[in-house]
Design a binder for these strands. Structure first.
Length: 424
DNA sequence: TCTGGGGTCCTAGGACCC
DNA sequence: TCTGGGGTCCTAGGACCC
């Protein structure tokens, strides 16, 4: 039996989320910015029509924003995360085998639905998700994930497809693949796109028919898989349960650069606290704590970037313990007279809490530590983040390391104080 | 003035072993 | 003068994704 994959993808997801709670935004040009209000990460169709590109720094398009009354929002990840869950839960009502691929995309395994009218069924899914969540989606269908991505792309753009396109039949492949530029193929980024174009390979069809030995030299095994997937040969199967995380990173750019070790320590302490909380949520411990600090990479003279890794004798998820290693590392790599623009922490060597190897000379009271962390997490979940925190995280109400998000919408779905008001 | 953040996989090359 | 070869493990860096 041949496989059938669908890719369900939310249209302009972050903008669509904002619109659900603020219908006045419908029909208007809207953009959503990255953390720190740095780059554009989502655009409504109206905003796209003004030539605003994905990922462009906002300061470069201030003129376009003003001239066209484009509405600008800081990103509101708790809202988007919650809306994402609603979309995914709705999809699960229709298809049992689903892989949540990103915050706004899911692969659906429709192989068992071969007897259905797939297009009709997907239209039904689309309609229902939109009704239940308010988020518009597009669905592309084909025999491999890579082809389903392409089908989805065309489904979004083509007026005729109206958001759903079934590209399972080979007869339509030539026309479809020729219409997709090689840089828009899943797995082809800037660098490979340059290489392919220089080799005369400009669209997905030409890539499909390219010599795979030649492609392998430059793009490695992934390039060969790509060609096979375009031909309809399965290389990537559905992954229903995500593999456990291999690393956890928490990092931020600073709106106001940091000069002192005290302020940097405060930032690092907060990153450790966030990261350790993520570890405990995964019921995992880390055996390797790294920290890194850097000045701006756009400041050519005097660019300083350094990291330091600390290997733990016994993996841990205890905030205070991880914190002490991180702050020790910071004292070792901190250099005076630098203006730091960005810093972060990484937890590596992640293992399940259950399998933590005991160290014979370990003199820490692990049971007590576990209890303390459980209590801390409980209180912070109930009362709000950072109700209880370590002194090293800083007591000032408005720390300089916090990212600027001046244009954030309310946390409509995850904060009692932000429930939408009904005005009669 | 102002350029996100969190991930994954693959490969090449060095260290080390016998 | 002449300095093996094959295997494994680890790491850094590059490429990609959203």
């Amino acid at each position: 039996m041949s496989s059938i994959f669908a890719l369900a993808d939310c249209n302009n997801f972050y903008v669509s989320c904002e619109r659900v709670f603020n219908p006045k935004l419908i029909g208007k040009p809207v953009i959503v910015l990255s953390n720190n209000d740095g780059c554009v990460v989502a655009r409504s169709e109206e905003a796209k029509s003004f030539g605003i590109k994905m990922g462009v720094p906002v300061f470069k398009i201030e003129d376009i924003i003003k001239a066209n009354n484009i509405l600008v929002y800081s990103s509101n990840y708790s809202l988007y995360g919650d809306m994402s869950q609603r979309v995914m839960n709705s999809l699960k009502e229709f298809v049992p085998k689903i892989e949540i691929y990103s915050i706004d995309e899911a692969f659906l395994d429709l192989s068992d639905f071969g007897n259905y009218d797939i297009t009709k069924y997907c239209r039904e899914i689309k309609k229902t998700v939109e009704k239940w969540t308010g988020i518009p989606i597009s669905i592309g269908i084909s025999s491999t994930k890579t082809l389903a991505k392409i089908a989805n792309r065309i489904a979004k753009k083509s007026k005729k497809a109206k958001g759903v396109l079934d590209l399972t039949e080979n007869t339509f492949h030539k026309q479809a693949l020729e219409s997709v530029g090689v840089s828009d193929v899943w797995g082809v980024g800037r660098s490979y796109s340059d290489f392919l174009t220089k080799s005369g390979i400009n669209n997905a069809m030409q890539l499909r028919d390219a010599d795979s030995n030649y492609i392998k030299q430059k793009m490695g095994i992934e390039g060969v898989r790509l060609i096979n997937e375009l031909k309809g040969t399965l290389c990537y199967s559905l992954e229903e349960s995500p593999p456990p995380k291999k690393g956890i990173t928490v990092s931020r750019s600073f709106k106001t650069p940091i000069k002192t070790i005290d302020n940097l320590s405060e930032a690092i302490a907060n990153f450790i606290s966030i990261g350790a909380g993520k570890l405990r949520k995964e019921k995992a411990s880390s055996g390797e704590v790294s920290i890194f600090i850097m000045t701006s990479r756009f400041n050519k003279e005097g660019y300083y970037s350094k990291s330091k890794k600390y290997i733990l004798a016994v993996p841990s998820n205890d905030t205070s313990e991880l914190l002490s290693f991180a702050l020790k590392s910071l004292r070792e790599i901190f250099k005076k007279n630098c203006t730091y623009k960005r810093a972060g922490i990484m937890f590596g060597k992640i293992v399940s809490e259950k399998y933590v190897q005991q160290d014979l000379f370990d003199n820490k009271n692990r049971k007590r530590s576990k209890k303390l962390m459980e209590t801390l997490d409980k209180i912070n979940i109930k009362m709000g983040t950072s109700t209880i925190k370590y002194a090293a995280q800083g007591l000032s109400g408005n720390p300089g390391w916090k990212p600027a998000c001046k244009r954030r919408s309310k946390r409509y779905t995850t904060d009692w104080n932000s429930l939408p008001e009904v005005i009669s």
